[in-house]
């Protein structure tokens, strides 16, 4: 697990799991289809990723599929960050 994946995983656990929630969340755990993150909550995750990584994720790429696991989210962030034009 790299730093990006760890940061996303920490955020997901902190933001979406209740105190008494004993579900295990790992890199491949389905977040959307697994009922951990819903479409409204996805917005806060997107905002966290954008702020932390100084990127803007286009709405067309912020799909439930792309947000369905920590690993796929990290891949999305890397893709978007790679396109960033230095200013």
């Amino acid at each position: 697990m790299d730093d990006l994946e760890r940061a996303i995983l920490d955020y997901v656990r902190r933001e979406y799991l209740e105190e008494d929630d004993d579900r295990q969340v790992g890199l491949e755990t389905p977040l959307i289809t697994g009922g951990i993150v819903d479409s409204f909550s996805m917005v806060s995750l997107k905002r966290f990723l954008e702020r932390k990584n100084d990127i803007e994720i286009p709405d067309a790429e912020a799909t439930p599929a792309a947000f369905d696991s920590v690993r796929s989210i990290a891949a999305l962030v890397r893709r978007v960050a790679a396109r960033r034009v230095p200013v």
Binding site: D38, F40, S41, V43, S44
Partner: peptide, 15 residues
């Protein structure tokens, strides 16, 4: 949830 989806407003949630 459905009403919020129909609105153009931004959405967020709390535990």
């Amino acid at each position: 949830v459905d009403g919020m989806r129909l609105a153009k407003a931004q959405t967020d949630t709390y535990k």
